[in-house]
Amino acid sequence: MRLGVLCSGGKDSLYACFRAMQAEEVVCLITIVPANPESYMFHTPNLHVVPLQATAAGLPLVSRESRGEKEEELIDLAGAISAARESHGIEGVVSGALMSVYQSSRVQRVCRELDLWCFNPLWYYDPRRYMGDLVASGFSVVISAVCAEPFDESWLGRRLDRDALSTLEAYSRDFGISLAGEGGEYETLVLDTPFFRKRIVIEESDTRYGNFRGSLCVTRARLEEK
C-alpha cells in the first residue's frame, strides 16, 4: 500500500515513518507549515528543516501552508493529503500520534472523508519502551525546544541518547513530565535515521531560553554523506 507520512520533523513522525516502511511502501512525506506557532495540531519548531529530511530520506515532500487556526487546520490538512493522493497516489496516511486523542481523531476524520486508510503505529506505545526503541534503533535526535521545569538551557541541541533518556526518566518520576514529551514538555528534531541516505548537520542555530522555556532554531544546515 502506498502511504504518505505526516511529518513534523520530530521523533514521533519519523519513527512512525520508519515503522511504516517496515510493512508498507512509503511514497512521500506530508507537512503542514502553520503560521501560528501555537498551532493546535502541528508541531512547529524547525519545520523548515523537513525538506532537508525528505531529501535525506529520498522521498518527495508535499508541503502546505496553514494559518494554524483551530478548525481551519483540518481543511489545510485535508488539502495537503488530497494533494499527496493526486501527486503520489497514496492510499493511506501515517501519523506519529502517541496519545493525543485530539490529534489522532482529527487525522482519522480527514482520512475517512477522503476514503483513505489511517495508520498510527505509535498509538499508546508504552513511553519507556518507545524511547528505548528509538534510541536503540539508530535515530539521531536532538532536543529543539523545552517548555517545562526542570529543563535548563543545556537541553537545547542535546542529543537524545541513553544518558539523556536516563535523565528524562528521572524528570518523569520527580517532576511528572511525560517521558516522550507528549505533554509538550519538549520538542525534537531528527538529524538521522536508519532510512536516511545522508545525515543532517546543523551548522548554525539560534537559541532562546528563559524560565524553563526555550527553543533552538536551526538557521543553517546541510546534508553530509553517512
Partner: peptide
C-alpha cells in the same frame, strides 16, 4: 496484509 495495524490495535491491549 496490513501488519502495521497490529501496532495500533493489539499492542496497546497487550501492554495493559
Amino acid at each position: 496484509k496490513r501488519p502495521l495495524l497490529r501496532d495500533e490495535f493489539v499492542r496497546p491491549v497487550a501492554q495493559i
